[in-house]
């Protein structure tokens, strides 16, 4: 029994320590935002990696998400003769949930894991120590540019994804004989349902998720130990942790913005 309590206690302490360290790293990263002007090249490089590199796959995923959403929902609505609402449903779903969440999960899998692996490799191969001896803060040099890049790039990616997803849904609504909603009707209904406030909320979510992805990737990278195996474990851990935190944050953001 004592062994069990000790086990639970040590796990809880580990979680508390991890959360504390993540918070401390986040505060330090935000503190270094003031140094962003001198790290512009690095920020642009990260934006290119995150944004341009992820754009094609994000578009493709969003296109099919919009199409599936349209075909699934449209056929059900058609049973009750209300398929004209499909534009509003796809639009709202893409803007409020699917766009930000799906794109962020994609970025977490593609970019967050790469960040964890890169920073982790730097940790394992003493490059982080080398930065410290060169009087360069690893948080300023590595974490800050990645966080800023993610904060701006993920909402931009989500914007594209939303547009492509809505177009995909519209095309399916028009060409699928079971739905058969003209694109103009689809578009009008979507525009009527969407407000700037909803779009802002969706992009705000994307920004928060972007922050989570960069922060988790860097935190897990900085904590990497144990050579190549450790780098592999960090990659997996960053993806799992990012997914988990994105889902948790999504609930709370939705709860407070509703």
């Amino acid at each position: 029994m004592i062994r069990f309590i000790t086990f639970i206690g040590s796990k809880l302490l580990n979680v508390a320590q991890g959360l504390g360290e993540m918070l401390a790293l986040f505060c330090e990263t935000v503190y270094y935002f003031k140094e962003a002007p001198r790290n512009l090249p690095s920020i642009f490089r990260q934006m290119n990696l995150i944004g341009v590199g992820t754009l094609p796959i994000a578009m493709l995923v969003a296109l099919f998400v919009g199409m599936v959403l349209s075909v699934q929902t449209g056929t059900q609505l058609a049973l009750y003769g209300t398929q004209e609402a499909i534009g509003a449903i796809v639009g709202m779903s893409m803007v409020k949930e699917l766009g930000p969440v799906m794109t962020s999960l994609l970025v977490a899998g593609r970019v967050g894991s790469a960040m964890a692996a890169e920073v982790g490799a730097m940790q394992v191969y003493e490059e982080i120590d080398a930065l410290k001896t060169l009087e360069i803060s690893p948080v300023r040099y590595l974490a800050m540019p990645r966080l800023i890049a993610c904060l701006f790039t993920v909402p931009a990616l989500v914007s594209f994804a939303i547009v492509v997803g809505i177009i995909g849904g519209g095309v399916v609504a028009e060409v699928n004989p079971k739905i058969n909603v003209p694109f103009t009707v689809y578009y009008d209904n979507m525009i009527r349902a969407l407000t700037y406030k909803e779009i802002f909320k969706g992009l705000l979510k994307a920004m928060v998720f972007g922050g989570i992805i960069a922060h988790v990737g860097c935190y897990v990278g900085f904590k990497t130990t144990g050579g190549a195996r450790g780098i592999g474990e960090s990659t997996t851990r960053s993806v799992v942790l990012s997914f988990l935190l994105i889902m948790v944050a999504n609930y709370f953001l939705t709860r407070f913005m509703i």
Partner: peptide, 26 residues
């Protein structure tokens, strides 16, 4: 300054950028 066992050069940078890193960053 320290020269590490693994050299700890930054792969994303060229030789010159590695050498000038401290001067540029500071």
């Amino acid at each position: 300054s320290m020269v590490f066992q693994s050299s700890a050069l930054f792969n994303s940078l060229t030789v010159g950028e590695n050498v000038g890193l401290w001067l540029r960053e500071n």
